[in-house]
């Protein structure tokens, strides 16, 4: 399965996962307080600068935005129609900054560090006798396999295009859903074969 994790030992890889997640969380809280697009431009520069510190492979990650252009286009159009074009730019810039920041964390963080960093959030469950590892693993798995779903979609699109000539169709949705479910079945089996989400330690 494709992983978006970048191999390496950059300063971003060495920063603790918990700290990175916390910074992204705080940044998004702050950014949602701001509405002026002029604030987002320096933020964008900073995030892109952070990618640049990872070198060429880091900058290649920016291609991720290409998949979102349609979505951004629609948002902008809606704002233009309702006469709030400037606000539209602000919304999109904010999204771009946040998506890039979140992605930066996920490509420089090992999944087991992520798991460990998310676990304290679910710690209170343990007071009630539930496992904190289970939901934490859920979060880590979603982050891990989200890019894989994009890959399934682009494969389907190629298969469709090769026989129909057109790239997009609502007809791709049912097979996409089925293939994603099958993928999650496989992951669930793989997990179960090694002891399931709660592990074998207290059995």
């Amino acid at each position: 399965m494709i992983s978006m994790y970048l191999t390496g030992n950059s300063w971003l890889h060495r920063t603790p996962a918990g700290l990175k997640l916390l910074l992204v969380a705080v940044a998004s809280l702050l950014l949602f307080q701001v509405t002026s697009p002029w604030v987002f431009l320096p933020c964008l520069t900073v995030v892109v600068g952070l990618y640049a510190t990872l070198g060429r492979e880091g900058l290649a990650q920016l291609k991720l935005l290409r998949g979102l252009t349609v979505f951004f286009g629609i948002l902008l159009l809606l704002h233009w129609v309702s006469g709030t074009l400037l606000e539209g730019f602000a919304v999109i810039l904010r999204l771009i900054v946040l998506v890039l920041a979140a992605n930066l964390v996920s490509v420089t963080t090992r999944m087991d560090d992520m798991l460990e960093a998310v676990m304290p959030l679910f710690k209170p469950l343990e007071w009630f006798g539930y496992s904190a590892r289970k939901p934490a693993l859920g979060v880590a798995l979603v982050l891990r396999f989200a890019p894989h779903m994009m890959q399934i979609f682009s494969r389907l699109r190629e298969a469709y295009q090769s026989r129909s000539g057109s790239r997009n169709s609502w007809r791709l949705l049912p097979p996409l859903a089925i293939q994603c479910l099958r993928m999650s079945d496989n992951v669930a089996d793989a997990l179960r074969a090694r002891g399931g989400s709660e592990g074998l330690s207290d059995r």
Partner: peptide, 22 residues
């Protein structure tokens, strides 16, 4: 193999079995 690997890197995949055992 693509249906078995849960973690992105080799070391994590190997270590996972051990964390499963506690």
């Amino acid at each position: 193999p693509d249906h078995q690997a849960i973690f992105p890197t080799v070391e994590e995949e190997i270590a996972f079995g051990l964390t499963q055992l506690g």
